[in-house]
Design a protein around this nucleic acid. Sequence first.
DNA 1: CCGCTTACTAAACAATTGTTTAGTATCCTA
DNA 2: TAGGATACTAAACAATTGTTTAGTAAGCGG
Lengths: 217, 217
Amino acid sequence: MRSVVEDKTTAARIRDAAIARFPIDGINGTTLRAVAADAGVSPGLVIHHFGSKEGLHRACDDHVVRAMTQMKRESLGEGAYRRAASIAAMYQMALPLVRYIAWTVGTGGETAARIFDELVDEAVELFAEGRDSGTIGEVYGDPRKQAAVLVAMQFSALVFHEHLTRVFGIDMLTAEGLAASAPYTLQILSGDLFDRQVMEETKKALQELERSQEGTR
Amino acid sequence: MRSVVEDKTTAARIRDAAIARFPIDGINGTTLRAVAADAGVSPGLVIHHFGSKEGLHRACDDHVVRAMTQMKRESLGEGAYRRAASIAAMYQMALPLVRYIAWTVGTGGETAARIFDELVDEAVELFAEGRDSGTIGEVYGDPRKQAAVLVAMQFSALVFHEHLTRVFGIDMLTAEGLAASAPYTLQILSGDLFDRQVMEETKKALQELERSQEGTR
DNA sequence: CCGCTTACTAAACAATTGTTTAGTATCCTA
DNA sequence: TAGGATACTAAACAATTGTTTAGTAAGCGG
């Protein structure tokens, strides 16, 4: 008979302990002994269930991706809700999972690519829908590139949560944090912050910067 | 007598080897033996010069921050150039240093905070200048929070360089990569991508999302 | 030339690591 | 209820880790 708090299989408890530790100590900094201790089991049992440390890592990746996909599917709504959902849905997940995703995507690797590309695909779809319904203007150049830049921008709040939390004074991995920063994000995205002409100048300056750099690498 | 390629002190060579390795293998995954081998010295010498592995890490942080500050100071221009410089200046640094910064800021920690806050301070200054000269509109709420969100957004290109490189087909840590992505970034920042009304709806949706989340954490 | 510091290596040390082994308890099924 | 699989532990193993030690070579001021 298990208590209410520990209403999980032992394997799940080990996996969740790893999900909590990997983002903090890194993949190499996390020892199987620490994970085992957190889960209240012996180190050998971790191997017994997951085969190896790498197997444990894979299991964590799989679980997090599955949880994210499921969460997004559940929170799929219409119109503005749908548009807000793509990233925001993650904030409805349990905090350790959000932390794990932020860490994974920032770290790189195959799972990171999987998550990123999934979000890019979704954004491209939203572009197509938005253009048909007139809520999104003509996309410059390649929609996929435009989507990638947008996803990276949106994700930044997740990756830099530590720093934004410091500035905002609210935990940025919570829905409250998202709500606190959203107005500032929208201020930027609405084009109200920068003057249009300034933007053109900046564009030219960047191009010139590139030209001046040519051949120096 | 040293060759042209290795025109550095031994300590500098060790430090640069570490700067190249830390972002790839992580702080715990990087062994002193690997760094020593890359620099062509014995493991003991690393300790002799830097005291400990932690000392080596600190030396790398210091060097990178110093290089970044110096680079920014040198590339400080006027008007549009100055505005473009804050992040773009990093792209003029040597690739390993850029990689190290991207890794550090994404990883978190004290140095990450130092770099991030420095860029935020700079952005706040630019806001003040821009408001006086009319190139920047009224900043919503707290300028520092606005700056933090902006810096995080700009930095995303650096942290997600791996994924953006995949989508764009150009190395995003080079000036060419920056130039390729800049039009897409500006498209978003100019407010041309999203309809203003859609943005208002999204804002409301996010607020509602927050309300529906209240008390569930 | 002496003596001292600095730059450096080779080898060994102690701790920690992921993993294996051997064994016990518990459960399920036939 | 017999028996084989499963869940689990304690202890040991082999490899790797950061670090120390002892020692050599080279520069340098006096």
